[in-house]
Amino acid sequence: MTNKNPGAQLRLQRFFGQNETILLLVLLAMVTAITAVSPRFLGPENLFSILLSASYTGIFAIGFLLVLVSGGLDVSFTAVATVAQYAMGTVLLANPDISPALALLIPLLVGMALGSLNALLIHYLSAPPIIITIANLNIFFGLLQFITGGEWLNGFPEWFDHFPQTYVLSFENADGVKYGLSVIVMIWLAVAVVAGVLMHYFKAGRKLYAMGGNLEAARRAGIDILRYRIFAYGFLGFCAGLGGMVHTLITQTVVPNTLVGHEFDVVAAVVLGGASIFGGSGTVVGTVLGVGLLAVLSNALTIMKVPTYWHEVFVGAIVILSITITTLSALAARNREKKYHAQ
């Protein structure tokens, strides 16, 4: 090689080969292109609205990432979120004077309980997670529909209605309408930061990566597999509950089938973010970028007045394209490392 410092070059290539870097560059390129076409895009009002509309998907995605990293899979979280929404909505309508803290705690507890149930079944039946969670998706959702009769819930207390309009930063636009960075977006970011710190700086997080990388080795190293499965699936349950709550706060109604059926949107975002479907790899930053990319894309299509029925074509094409690029670049990276270390 003519290069004087192949190690540094490899590091540079590693950095640019990293999924997060690629995603960020793509995101920036997209933002630049869209702004050039429609300058309104980059305005704070639009950006805040993108963040708000992506918040619950973002929260689901963080939970899903943890399960994926641990070597698991869970497609039942949309049903868990819906059950959690109904539990909260029902209690709120029956006792409008209930303390807000208590009301908002309900979906979280419901979520964690159902998530842990997934973990227990997967562990004790030693069955593939996808099968168990498909079964549970049907059970949770079927029973919910059966019990509630598919009834819509709305007319929640006033504080509940005002919650999403609590702004961390607030502005007024030319028409005098208030807008800003909603506290809900902060909830999403908080979850992301907590998960990010947990996965990198806590032993528990590293153990989740270890389990996803080599389950048998994790067992031999003395990791309590059941405990960490409950942790991962329970955390996704928590995120499902929280996402369900956030969704209700934004829409102010609880409808049985707005979330169920959209589990794969979240899967697509997380995979786009670079997490491996087979476990053991993936980062919170990548996941947030993955969610962001899809949100920006759909917002851009709206701004550019592309008919909504074309949106999914773009999303599908982007997902296939990005997965192809990731697969091919992973192959290339492996060859590069091989070559470098063979020298």
Binding site: F202, K203, R206, Y209, A210, G213, A217, A221, I223, G280
Partner: peptide, 27 residues
Amino acid sequence: DLALFPNLTVKENIAFQSFSEKGSPMV
């Protein structure tokens, strides 16, 4: 059959047992 974690770095694999020690939950 090696009991390594292919997705973790060399240093983490070598020092993995320290993650199971009592004490601070942080790495």
